[in-house]
Computed example of a mutant assay.
Amino acid sequence: MTGGYLYHRRVADRAAANDARLDFVSVPTWPFPLPVAAGPRLLRELTEKRPDAILLDSIAAAFVGPWLPRKNLPPLVGMLHQPPGGIDYDGLRRYAQKLLDQRAYRFASRLLIASDDLAETLRRSGMPADLLRVVPPGRNPADDPVPPDGDLRRGRRAAVLSVGNWVERKGLLDLLEAVAVLPPDAVTLHLVGDPDVDPDYAARVRVRLKEPDLDGRVVVHGLKTPAEVVGFYRAADVFALASVREPYGTVYGEAMAAGLPVVGWNAGNLPHLARDGVEGFAVPPGDREALAEALRTLAFDDAARERMAAAASTRSESFPNWDDTARVLFTEIRAVVEETRT
């Protein structure tokens, strides 16, 4: 429901409007590096489908990289939502995946990048700048919002929404610590996202939620549909995500489009979306006191919150919607196909 998965679903929904069709071939959900063994079968299946081009997502690149080049394959276009090696792994896994990802991208005719921040990272790493095209996600996750039940403030000054799966890089424990030191009447924090992606991390979060200083301050909603997520955006006062590595930060853009000031670390792509003190607060990574102070300001200073909310809404108008994203993506793929045929 989030990130690159939602990106491709939204683009596929708009393929016909762009005189195109997007079919999916999936990598087996085996533990790393076992899916590498499925690479030859995947490439054979792709060849048999006879597509005009292959759009290779960054989650799957490592698993076909060792088997490239291959005869009779159409042009390859990379779609990068993360840098080579990914963003959720460390150590040997990250090192091995980085090598495999880089090998796959060497055979790409174009690399479509989800954010300016990620594109800058790739240029600095030595990827050819002339192959890179930034195609950011849309700001509109759903057209028909489903509102949540009741007042999200729950008697407090502000309702803070955080949307993200419970994985360590999303910084949920940092956000909980920031909320815990606020005055009891400051904020009610609402968590939307899958709590079961990383069971070990989720266990730590659940232990923290049971501490007395968070009693009644945090509401866990779990997975929600895109329409329900939009309903939460529209019912909240502030959006917060303390993510340390967010290649684009789709949820920041969605929240700003709903008129929410955003709070997060001054890291990843957030500085490209929101200016500190204008559309919200981008505080030094790891500074929980600064994170808490940003939330405190937005909870108790109504004028500042309203000013930043208006600025966030205005800034979001420069972000693409999903129709824009799909049009650019299929235009880039079509250009690659035409270049290959000439």
Rank of each mutant, 00 (worst) to 15 (best):
D130G: 14
G85N: 01
T325Q: 10
L42K: 11
G253F: 02
R234A: 08
L270F: 04
A312I: 07
L80F: 10
E332L: 03
D143K: 11
G86M: 00
D88W: 13
E254R: 10
D287S: 11
H221S: 09
P320A: 06
F63T: 07
L73K: 02
L295S: 08
R341T: 14
D194C: 04
G268T: 07
A186R: 02
Y252A: 12
V283M: 06
K49N: 14
E332W: 01
V192N: 02
R106A: 13
R154P: 05
V192I: 10
Y89R: 15
D13L: 14
V207D: 15
I87D: 12
P51A: 08
G138L: 03
G65I: 03
V278G: 10
G91A: 03
A203F: 03
D196M: 03
I333F: 04
L112F: 02
R288L: 14
V181M: 06
R94N: 15
L214W: 01
V192S: 02
A235W: 01
D116R: 13
H221P: 07
L273Y: 07
V328M: 08
I113N: 02
L112M: 04
M1K: 12
V163A: 06
T250H: 11
R156H: 06
L42V: 14
V244I: 14
D101Q: 12
G249C: 06
P183V: 11
R327T: 13
V263R: 01
R44Y: 13
R124C: 15
H221F: 07
G253S: 10
G222R: 08
G85A: 01
Y7A: 10
D117W: 13
W166Y: 11
A96G: 14
